[in-house]
């Protein structure tokens, strides 16, 4: 298939960027989206041009490295997958595809379609853990955990930290990401011990970093490649409320 690509090019964090048009030809419909980008880059390199910078690594939908805002959707038009698992058969021959980077103040652009998501790491560093050291822990079966809670915790823990929630949100809010981690621990007895401290610290740093406020549009849930539920946001609101009044 032949496609018209409109790709955001920006040489550095402070540079002015713009959209550049690239036609690509003879793309197999069985190719993945990133393989299509590889083909484009190979052509650019052959012509002595700078290839388009974009993040990617595992290419099997789990590392959370790939991003790309494709035709108005983070990770493209298909549901429940990351960009690396998106395949060209989801597009029509001759279609124009607009590819933009994640856009949010706390995610500055590094180059082209590559953004800096270290803000997410800072949020986790503020409290996304159980404060225990290696060794000296009880037997794994010493604490029984309700299966339903373990499953819900797993649902939340499935977050890959890709940032699609922030990219999708009209407010660039990180609530789904933060709440997924807060929820995972809130649901497990191991995490309850420092629940109050955790939610307060994580929310505080989230605000400081300049993410927007949640207005419950649920775009995050709709675009999340791992189908993380907004019920986690409600749970975090609850945790936060309880933490503040206690």
């Amino acid at each position: 298939m032949d496609l018209k690509l409109k790709i955001w090019r920006q040489t550095g964090p402070d540079a002015e960027g713009k959209f550049i048009h690239y036609p690509v030809h003879n793309i197999s419909k069985d190719a993945s989206f990133l393989e299509m980008m590889d083909i484009l880059n190979e052509e650019l390199v052959a012509n002595g041009e700078e290839p388009v910078a974009f993040d990617h690594d595992c290419r099997e939908g789990i590392c959370g490295m790939c991003s790309l805002y494709i035709n108005g959707h983070p990770h493209g038009p298909d549901d429940s997958i990351t960009t690396c698992q998106l395949h060209m058969r989801k597009f029509k021959d001759g279609e124009t595809i607009v590819i933009e980077p994640w856009r949010a103040k706390p995610f500055p652009i590094i180059k082209d379609l590559m953004v800096d998501r270290s803000a997410f790491d800072l949020i986790i560093q503020a409290g996304g853990y159980v404060s225990i050291n290696t060794g000296g822990v009880p037997d794994a079966n010493a604490i029984p955990i309700k299966k339903e809670n373990a499953d819900l915790a797993m649902d939340a823990a499935a977050c890959i930290g890709c940032g699609a929630c922030v990219a999708a949100c009209k407010n660039a809010s990180a609530m789904l990401f933060v709440s997924a981690k807060v929820s995972q621990f809130a649901l497990l007895p191991q995490g309850k011990v420092e629940a109050k401290r955790r939610v307060e610290k994580m929310v505080a740093i989230m605000d400081d970093l300049g993410f927007g406020n949640c207005t419950n549009t649920y775009a995050c849930e709709a675009e999340c490649p791992k189908d993380i539920s907004v019920a986690n946001i409600a749970r975090m609101n609850r945790e936060f409320f309880v933490a503040k009044i206690s």
Binding site: K6, F19, Y69, N71, G72, H73, V98, E100, R103, A104, K105, P106, A168, K170, N171, A172, S173, G210, F211, G212, N213, T215, N216, T217, Y218, A219, E221, A222, E223
Partner: peptide, 29 residues
């Protein structure tokens, strides 16, 4: 206040606007 913060959180918008909100009116509060 919330809205102003939300605008600040995304200084540069997208060329293709998102259309994935589940709650349609939520975009226009």
């Amino acid at each position: 206040t919330l809205q102003i913060q939300n605008w600040i959180a995304r200084p540069k918008g997208y060329k293709v606007k998102a259309s994935s909100e589940d709650s349609f009116f939520s975009k226009y509060m």
